[in-house]
Design a binder for these strands. Structure first.
Lengths: 185, 185
DNA sequence: TAACAACCGGACAACAATGTCCGGTTGTTA
DNA sequence: TAACAACCGGACATTGTTGTCCGGTTGTTA
């Protein structure tokens, strides 16, 4: 839904425009995939292409702004004492079902942009916390690494990316059933 | 490597051109991924774009010709009495490491082209044979279906598709270690 | 209120990929 | 050998995306 054409409200609206672009990008990436045309994002935000490229010089810069929230949510959950590895994996799966873009980008091991690597490290680190705990409790095999989990989550994401949204929850459930067997002792 | 420019050898060379296109497409799909420009295939085959589109009206038609060999190999292996499910999964993984295009296309559940569905059914059927046998022997959980395996293989393929070729064998090994845990009883 | 700096947005140029078209070539048939 | 049908290949029109440019607008500052 192209947002109503936003009148030029001068420099003071810069932050507002930026926020509208991030919100629009979140929806567009979820609907049309990570490779959706950026012009579609500009249109959805009710903003000119010029403003989009001024705020975010390329696709990955825009995507990183969108993903920031996703990682923050994960980190917040991981920080809660009551949350364990399963909870974190459940949330990341839920995020993936909603939009595969985040995990797909983050789990691509050879992404050239250093900011993506930083983001992946943050995800690996928060998984590592829950993983160590679960391993100590004997709920996870000793030889499963956080890197394994990042890969597994990314693998699931790249499968879901090719699926219509309606089939994603069921497919994710079935695949986790297989993957869990290899994670548990 | 652009094959040497092929002189126009008239109608009698039609079959030869077709074969050159399939061979070139196999390499291009392996090197540059399934979405590589078709003009690159024509160039690699030493053939004009016109000839490419005359033989194969669209990408999927060309891909199906390439994949035909892959499925035939799988079916031949599955037909051997000495081969079990592991052997078939090993071969399909090997094919995936070489080129992710085949499994990626075949495992996309909602592909519009009916010929893709036929191909997927062939793969599901040959897996089902080995699966039934392995289940009877108690080497596979009772509730694992051939559809699960097709999805799992496709999931792995879509992960490998984003990886440089050098990292694929190791990643495939690690992911199968997880997946195997969910397949075995 | 006058001048200005920052910002806006869409037109547009540059580029890339697809698929069509057609003049030209080849082998074949009479 | 003459005429023809099939096929060849690349030029090109088309379509779609990216990223830039610039005339115009806005709020601010003096």
């Amino acid at each position: 839904m192209p947002a109503a054409r936003r009148p030029n409200r001068g420099p003071s609206a810069a932050a507002e425009n930026r926020a509208a672009l991030i919100a629009a990008a979140r929806e567009v990436f979820a609907d049309a995939g990570y490779n959706a045309p950026l012009s579609m994002v500009a249109r959805a935000a009710g903003v000119g292409q010029g403003s989009l490229y001024r705020h975010f010089p390329d696709r990955i810069s825009l995507a990183l702004a969108v993903f920031e929230d996703s990682v923050a949510d994960l980190e917040a959950l991981a920080a809660e004492p009551s949350a364990d590895l399963d909870d974190v994996l459940a949330l990341i799966t839920e995020q993936t079902i909603a939009s595969t873009a985040f995990v797909t980008v983050v789990s691509t091991p050879s992404h050239p942009d250093p900011r993506v690597i930083v983001l992946r490290d943050r995800v690996a680190r928060l998984l590592e916390g829950g993983l160590a705990e679960a391993r100590d409790a004997g709920r996870v095999r000793a030889d499963v690494t956080a890197e394994d989990l990042v890969l597994a989550v990314g693998m699931l994401a790249s499968l879901l990316a090719n699926l219509p949204a309606a089939e994603r929850p069921e497919t994710a459930r079935r695949m986790w059933r297989l993957l869990r067997g290899g994670i548990e002792p």
